[in-house]
Amino acid sequence: MTKELTCICCPMGCALTAELEDGKVTNVTGNTCPRGKGYAETELTAPVRSVTTTVITQQGIPVPVKTKTPVPKDKIFDVVRAIKALPVSLPVKMGDVLLVDVCGSGSDIVAARTVENS
């Protein structure tokens, strides 16, 4: 079976064609770089996404955060709920780990910007 998909690893958005046999990816074409192959393999077996959102700090100022590594696609909403429930107080530095192993995904939530307490 062949599957057409768009690589989302970078803004090039290469159009990939993947060959599937018994649920396994056997061949990928259309990728400009090796990441595209890896993307097709995970996307067709266990899709993952990076999540970005904001935490409203106790000072009322939002701080952008991200998952350090991608999380399973079906956990996105759980991850966002966990982030929104975090108590965070300023100041925050870019790279600060705000939550470890979010929703058992193995990924951490880190601050994506330095925000001082002004």
Binding site: C10, T52, T53, T54, P64, R113, T114
Partner: peptide, 22 residues
């Protein structure tokens, strides 16, 4: 632009907008 997708060419990793700016 708090979403990711910035900096793959410049820094070789996928950053959010604020991280790229910082």
């Amino acid at each position: 632009c708090i979403h990711g997708g910035f900096g793959l060419h410049t820094f070789g990793e996928e950053l959010t907008g604020p991280e790229y700016a910082e």
